[in-house]
């Protein structure tokens, strides 16, 4: 059985995957000795649905500025279209010979191909959505580095004003994403690092305030205050980098977080 990366993809494809598995078992146990009915109509319905998906997919790919999505779409289209053609061939062959074993095998291969091709297509779009979240996280990462140049209270206020909405936006997106993942370890990793960031953001602001105050009072204890602030920035940067890394994992990367 295939492993689906997100709950949305799983909800759409898993019931069909189970049905295809049952058909495979029937075929492999040689319990499919009865005459196959005319499958022309259901195969045509699959073909129409595939053509619609390809059309919608091409429209979306044409309108996006995500270059990776544009590159990854065509092979996914080809996979699902080839499987649809295979189904049509199987239906024709079964119409001629309702007992044909090679045609039954072709039917199963076609159904499996439709599943994996549709899964690949959905994964392409899903990864495009992931890249949008990664961009937000990278923005936060870059902005965290700005904290090292804040040396007065006015700049600190500006820094906090800019950091807070960015951090909240990222946390919301990452939390939503964690709820979508079927891989528990990946989901928990995202939640844990997001919680770390929520906890350490006020600590960072405090450490920056101490640093600014130390500078204002003449600089005694500057090194310690700076080291403390930099340590917190390091921890937060680590959490954001881990979020970026985990976001980009797929279900195939099962052992990445073990």
């Amino acid at each position: 059985m295939p492993v689906f990366h997100t709950k949305t993809i799983e909800a759409i494809l898993d019931p069909v995957a189970q049905q295809v598995s049952q058909l495979v078992i029937l075929h492999e146990e040689a319990q499919d000795g009865n005459a196959m009915p005319d499958l022309s109509n259901p195969v045509m319905a699959v073909s129409a649905a595939v053509q619609n998906l390809v059309k919608v997919g091409k429209d979306t790919a044409n309108s996006t500025d995500d270059k990776i999505l544009k590159q990854e779409m065509p092979p996914a289209f080809t996979g699902v279209e080839e499987s649809s053609n295979k189904l049509a061939e199987a239906a024709m062959e079964l119409k001629r010979d309702p007992y044909s074993s090679p045609a039954r095998k072709k039917l199963i291969d076609g159904a499996r191909g439709i599943l994996s091709g549709t899964s690949d297509l959905l994964l392409c779009f899903d990864q495009s959505e992931v890249r949008k979240i990664v961009r937000v996280a990278k923005g936060v990462l870059e902005y965290l580095a700005v904290s090292e140049v804040v040396e007065c209270l006015e700049d600190l206020v500006t820094f906090v004003k800019n950091l807070s909405p960015g951090m909240a936006n990222m946390a919301n997106k990452v939390t939503s994403r964690s709820k979508e993942l079927t891989h528990t370890a990946h989901a928990n990793g995202l939640i844990n690092h997001t919680e770390n960031l929520k906890r350490t953001t006020p600590v960072l602001v405090s450490s920056m305030k101490i640093f600014v105050t130390v500078l204002k009072k003449g600089g005694a204890g500057r090194d310690e205050a700076q080291q403390n602030r930099n340590y917190i920035i390091g921890c937060m940067s680590h959490d954001v980098n881990e979020i970026i890394r985990i976001l980009q994992l797929t279900s195939a990367d099962d052992d990445e977080l073990s």
Binding site: I12, L13, Q22, L26, G33, L53, V56, T60, A111, L115
Partner: peptide, 29 residues
């Protein structure tokens, strides 16, 4: 959203096909 709807339509059509093929042999759950 449109992609998801299109994928749902494929899933439904494939399910109907597999059932049609399966019913001929043995009822699928």
């Amino acid at each position: 959203e449109q992609i998801l709807e299109a994928a749902k339509a494929i899933a439904a059509a494939t399910s109907a096909l597999v059932k049609a093929a399966g019913y001929a042999q043995r009822e699928l759950v």
